[in-house]
Design a protein around this nucleic acid. Structure first.
Lengths: 113, 113
DNA sequence: CGGTATCCTCGGAGATACTG
DNA sequence: CAGTATCTCCGAGGATACCG
């Protein structure tokens, strides 16, 4: 997923949403403002480093907003932006589609058998 | 993206759609039936192997249907299934969202400067 | 607490070659 | 033509440690 092979906007969104974390983070952020450590607790298996990188990616994409509160210990809050909120129903629609088409996949012969 | 970390359907769809090729292949397949070699021509940078693997993944997910015609040389055709066709507008919506929120990203300071 | 840098590993994906 | 197998390599991502 390094370079784009088309000028298609779809390919560009997928550059941001691809992977395990982006949609999950959006999913948890729609519950409201979250701190770094809260998101870490929401996703126990995400590494410190990846959480940081993914949040930055979402920030660059205009999906997430980052607010730093000076003081000690540090305090940083993450929110969905307006664009991020607009994205939520689209992602949900994908989830619904997946659930609704579950029977289609059930027809696939089990290769593990 | 190996194992799921939640039972969330969104995470499951993203397992299928993540990466450079799935959405691109769906994009080209919505033009109609395509043969393996046609898809290869549509995406000149996809490797033989990856195209094969990705098509199988989409097939397992119930998005793409594979039809083999006996004879020589071999001939295999790929189509979107009903579920695949239903998925198209959802993916398009993501593309539209991306285009519409382009100005948000334009506000991000250029780190390459 | 949140972020970054460094190191290291493991598997995703390209190239190639072979079969039906 | 379409698909699979083998080999290889590069980089995504984990673990760890240190800074503001």
């Amino acid at each position: 997923m390094k370079d784009l092979v088309s000028r298609c906007p779809i390919e560009e969104v997928m550059r941001v949403l691809s992977g395990r974390w982006p949609t999950l983070l959006i999913y948890y952020l729609k519950e409201g403002t979250k701190r770094f450590s809260e998101l870490q607790r929401d996703n126990p298996t995400v590494s410190h480093r990846m959480l940081s990188l993914e949040l930055r990616k979402l920030e660059q994409a205009g999906i997430v907003e980052r607010t730093v509160f000076d003081g000690y210990p540090l305090r940083v809050e993450y929110d969905l932006t307006r664009a991020g909120l607009d994205l939520v129903p689209l992602i949900d629609a994908l989830g619904d589609w997946w659930t609704e088409t579950d029977d289609t996949r059930a027809l696939v012969p089990d290769e593990k058998a």
